[in-house]
Design a protein around this nucleic acid. Structure first.
Length: 274
DNA sequence: ATGTTTGTTCCGAT
DNA sequence: CATCGGAACAAACA
């Protein structure tokens, strides 16, 4: 489900609301697998305070007060949502954390319909390993278009696949990649080897622009309403999609092509993208 | 019934 | 041995 803008929205909202809260209780549904096994997972969390919540690529990272980390990856249908103490569990609630700080107690639920998501405890070295799996951060201003260009050229594949490869550049998913390619005027099936440095630059610019917009709009909530922030609030970026989900090109009004590329829905305009 | 879904990882082919 | 693409993971909805 969520891509970088959605994950960042969730992480920032949690950080604002549950920093320094102490984990009092951890409940895990028996059909959902956490790491390490439930008993150790609970033991690692109970009694810990949350120093800080942030994101690394599409992971939500809870920094604990013992130098360990709770790392949550939402995959397709994961959600982190506050739930009132008295209200009944969410439909796909898998894990529940009860948190408290100075007499205030609240519930944070991890919901996941399809259960592709993950919740893992990591120590310092485990967390380092996680970080090393990821490539460039498109939001990092220090990333130059020539560095990006070099990374793209490493792959002998089509550009859309490479943009989705988190080891090359981390954070974009199917929606934002479709739009970034459109904004840069590049066809999704172009071989990366055919891209000029100028085109790579346009692509990095488009990617940054669309990700920043997505963040500004607090993420994209599709009709399934799978993405909401921890308070259940929808994002609004779905109202600003460029080509994703469109029938006609917003630029030239010609028909948008829709096809599967590497198993993912892909939208492009053969007039505006070359 | 069939096709679709915002992600990642594993396996087989090359 | 490395790399790439497709399948698999699982569940709901139109």
């Amino acid at each position: 489900m969520p891509e970088l803008p959605e994950v960042l929205t969730i992480a920032q909202t949690l950080d604002k609301n549950i920093r320094d809260f102490r984990i009092e209780k951890v409940t895990v549904d028996s059909i959902f697998r956490v790491s390490p096994v439930v008993e150790d997972f609970q033991k690692a969390l109970i009694g810990r305070s949350i120093n800080k919540i942030s994101n690394y690529a599409k992971n939500i990272v809870f920094e604990l007060d013992d130098k360990r980390y709770l790392v949550v990856h939402l995959a397709m249908t994961g959600q982190l949502m506050f739930r009132k103490l008295e209200s009944k569990p969410f439909r796909w609630e898998r894990v529940l954390l009860t948190l408290s700080k100075s007499g205030k107690t609240l519930n944070l639920a991890y919901n996941d319909m399809r259960m592709f998501g993950k919740m893992e405890i990591k120590d310092q070295s485990g967390y380092k390993e996680l970080e090393q799996k990821y490539g460039l951060n498109p939001l990092d201003e220090n990333v130059t278009s020539s560095a990006f260009h070099i990374q793209l050229k490493k792959k002998n594949s089509i550009i859309k696949n490479v943009l989705l490869d988190q080891k090359i550049i981390a954070g974009a998913g199917n929606i934002y990649v479709n739009d970034a390619l459109f904004m840069a005027g590049i066809l999704p099936k172009r071989k990366t080897t055919s891209l000029s440095e100028k085109e790579s630059g346009a692509l990095l610019k488009g990617l940054r622009e669309i990700l920043r917009e997505g963040i500004e709009h607090r993420g994209s909530t599709l009709d399934d309403e799978m993405f909401v922030d921890p308070f259940g609030k929808k994002g609004s970026h779905q109202n600003y999609f460029r080509i994703y989900g469109k029938k006609t090109c917003p630029n030239c009004q010609s028909n948008v092509v829709f096809e599967q590329v590497n198993g993912r829905g892909t939208y492009y305009c053969t007039v505006c993208q070359k």
